[in-house]
Structure formats: structure tokens, C-alpha cells
Nucleic acid binder design. Structure first.
Lengths: 133, 133
DNA sequence: ACGCTTGCGTTATGTTATAACGAAATATAC
DNA sequence: GTATATTTCGTTATAACATAACGCAAGCGT
């Protein structure tokens, strides 16, 4: 039982890859409605869960939405920088910060499993635009 | 018009302070239902918005819920360590990590406004318990 | 006192997410 | 190769989280 859900997963991933911002599960649902008129939320959420597990999609917790992973190495945690102006989400790597964090919390006896680092602000493009005006 | 909403805000804050984990807005709603039988979601959300603005409450993005600030200085961003076992949420300060983050993103032209750092894992108490068993 | 401004409570609804179940597809036993 | 077990999927329904909009009431200025 290998390939049944994978069709839907690749469709979902394709939708996310073509988007230029994070999409909610219901945005994805809408996007797939043309091709799958009877698609329902659990189908999308199941696909997203599988993709997230693999690391090819990340959930953006502070937006309740999802982005395609833009790294070649999917086996990593990321820092998400989220432009509150244009909605773009960039993925940044910074292993050192994750290590610092785990170390810091380790001192208090906390065993870190999953890091959520999301930074809201204004991206370079939007910042330039503001300066120009 | 000074004191009308503040009563509700202090009630909400009291509920959060007595909780030993993060509460959703609807948990708070339930807790206040005894005293205010007709209370509705917007009342709670408005109170939470005001308290969050002041810094006396923090939203935990990855849990869609809220905790009372445990720091004396409310004017700061925090690192939340969230125990997936018992649900406890600890607030940790680490200005250096925020600086590192802002610096790192600044290099890409990103202007950081708000940091969300939430670490899921297992707290000291729950870790000890697991070892003991 | 009268009207102006502000923000609150309420109703209604929008958005995000999942439980539960039956049907279909694949695998396993014999 | 058929019967049975197992997994996964679509579907229905509903739960959980959040806010728009409006009217009323409280405080304020005159």
C-alpha cells in the first residue's frame, strides 16, 4: 500500500510550490477544487501531515498555514522570516541558533524536541519600497 | 472611560495565573462562565488582546493558546518552552538569541519586528519521571 | 442636560482542524 | 486464487479557534 495518497500529496506540494506566500489548508482546498470537485478538508490535512512528516512542507505556526520547503536538505529545522507586508515567507538555516537554544534550555532540564522559530517583520523588497516612497 | 474593560481583563489574567498550562480562549470562557453566565468569545478575545498588548499575557502560537507572563519586566520577547507531556509552559529570557536572530536576518535585508520562539519537548519534571519508571 | 465619542456586549458568522465511519485498495494466509 | 486482515482514503459531521458588525451604554465636553 504505497502510492494511493502520494498523488494527492504531490498535488498539494505543487500548489504550495507555486504560491508566493504561505497557504492555509483551505486555500489549498480551493486550489484543488477544480481538479477534485468533491475534495474535503481531511484529505488536504492528511496530505499536509504526510508532507510535513517528510519535511517537504513546513507549517507556519503563527499563520496557521503551510509553505513548501525550499531547502534541498529536508532534514533540518528552519527559521521562518515572515513579511507582514507582502506575506512572503523565507526559510533560513542557522544551526548555531538551534544549538544555542537547546543548550540554554538543557540547563533548566528541558529536553528540546522541536523548535518553532518564526520572525515577523518587513522583507528587503518591501523595506526598499517604503524607503523609495 | 477607564475602568469598564479592566475588570474583565483582571479576571482573565487571574484565570491564566492560576492555570498550570496554557489556556485557549475558550478554556478561559468556560472558567468565567460561572461568574458571567452570558459571556461570549469576543469579550475574552478583546481582553486577551489588551493584555497581550501590555505584555502581561503572551500568546503561544503553536498551541493557539495563552499564558500569563511570569516575568517582572513585561517589555521583552520570550522563549517559550512547552512540555508536550504535561502541558506546562515556561518563559525563558535570552536576549542574546534574539539579537543573533535579528542580526542574521538583517544580513538578508529583513527587518525583524516580532520574534516567535517556541520549543516543544519534555520538561525536567516529566523527564525525571520517565527515567524513574 | 444634551449630544459626542469610545469601547463594550451580543449576535452571527467565518476560519481552521479533526473525529468517526464506511468503502475501496492492497497485502497475507491458506 | 479466494478469503480474510489491514491500511488508507473519501465523506459526513462537528469541534475548536477567531472576528465582523452593530447597537447600546458609559464617560466626556459644552
Amino acid at each position: 500500500m504505497r502510492t494511493r495518497g502520494e498523488v494527492m500529496q504531490s498535488k498539494i506540494l505543487a500548489v504550495l510550490k507555486h504560491a508566493d506566500s504561505a497557504l492555509s489548508a483551505y486555500d489549498i482546498l480551493e486550489a484543488l477544487r477544480d481538479e477534485f470537485p468533491k475534495i474535503a478538508p481531511p484529505t488536504v490535512y492528511r496530505g499536509l501531515a504526510a508532507l510535513t512528516e517528510k519535511g517537504s512542507v513546513h507549517r507556519v505556526e503563527s499563520l496557521n498555514s503551510f509553505v513548501a520547503c525550499t531547502n534541498h536538505n529536508h532534514d533540518h529545522a528552519s527559521i521562518m522570516s515572515i513579511c507582514d507586508d507582502c506575506g512572503s515567507v523565507e526559510e533560513n538555516e542557522a544551526p548555531k541558533i538551534f544549538d544555542d537554544l537547546s543548550g540554554l534550555l538543557g540547563k533548566t532540564g528541558f529536553d528540546a524536541h522541536r523548535h518553532v522559530i518564526e520572525v515577523h517583520g518587513v522583507c528587503a523588497a518591501c523595506g526598499d519600497q517604503d524607503n523609495a516612497s
